[in-house]
Nucleic acid binder design. Structure first.
Length: 212
DNA sequence: CCGGCGATCCTCT
DNA sequence: GAGGATCGCCGGG
């Protein structure tokens, strides 16, 4: 169904940018705790490889668990830049982890992508991970970064252009049931229920215990 | 199935 | 100089 009334001012901001990848209709100016559950069910691709987001965590303004809590540093600079870009950091000196910067510019908020249901480029992901087991390909922030080939060179890259792509779920797809619970692997603000996941998904990094 | 620990490196105290 | 927004392996129950 071609629309002759083309682009209204309600459309995505990047709708007319040549070469721009879709942003799945998401508004990255939203606060992290509001955006994080909306990302469940969205497909995340890097160079066409990736899957459906099934687990996220919000890291907010004045959040003691956030890398941005003690102010801007060289490592977390991406968090204080414009929303809609990547923040990639190295964890435990070994793993890379991907965040999507959101909120107001300079606020220092982001959403950590914790798990994907693999859907695109299974062969490439298995090769990078050295695994056959589909369930473990992207079940964790370090695992999914390895599967998608994400490293420090992806820090600060915009999410609305290659190699990144964010695809909204099909219009006829049932909305995923999203549950929340405490975030994983942190010591401060450990009770804040800012971990979000698709209920019943077998691709989570760990089972969701929390309430819906 | 579960808990413990080493890897590995950079950041901030 | 300590400690991670982690992972995978090892050992024991």
């Amino acid at each position: 169904m071609p629309s002759t009334t083309a682009s209204s001012n309600k459309g995505p901001k990047n709708a007319c940018v040549p070469g721009a990848a879709p942003l799945a209709g998401l508004d990255f100016r939203a606060p992290a705790h509001a955006l994080a559950p909306l990302l469940i069910g969205v497909t995340l691709l890097v160079d066409g490889v990736g899957g459906r987001i099934v687990e996220t965590e919000a890291y907010g303004d004045a959040d003691p668990a956030s890398h941005s809590f003690r102010g801007r540093t060289p490592r977390n600079a991406a968090m204080f830049g414009p929303p809609g870009r990547a923040y990639v950091y190295r964890s435990y000196g070994v793993h890379w982890c991907l965040n999507l910067v959101c909120g107001a510019e300079g606020e220092g908020t982001a959403v950590l992508i914790r798990a994907l249901e693999p859907t695109h480029g299974l062969e490439a992901m298995c090769a990078r991970r050295g695994l056959q087991d589909e369930r473990l390909l992207c079940a964790g922030p370090g695992r999914l970064a390895q599967a998608l080939g994400i490293d420090g060179g992806f820090d600060q890259l915009p999410l609305d252009a290659p190699p990144f792509a964010l695809l909204a779920p099909p219009a006829d797809a049932p909305a995923p049931q999203v549950v929340s619970g405490p975030r994983i692997g942190i010591t401060r603000a450990a009770d804040v229920p800012w971990r979000f996941g698709e209920a019943g998904s077998r691709f989570l990094s760990r089972p969701m215990r929390g309430t819906g």
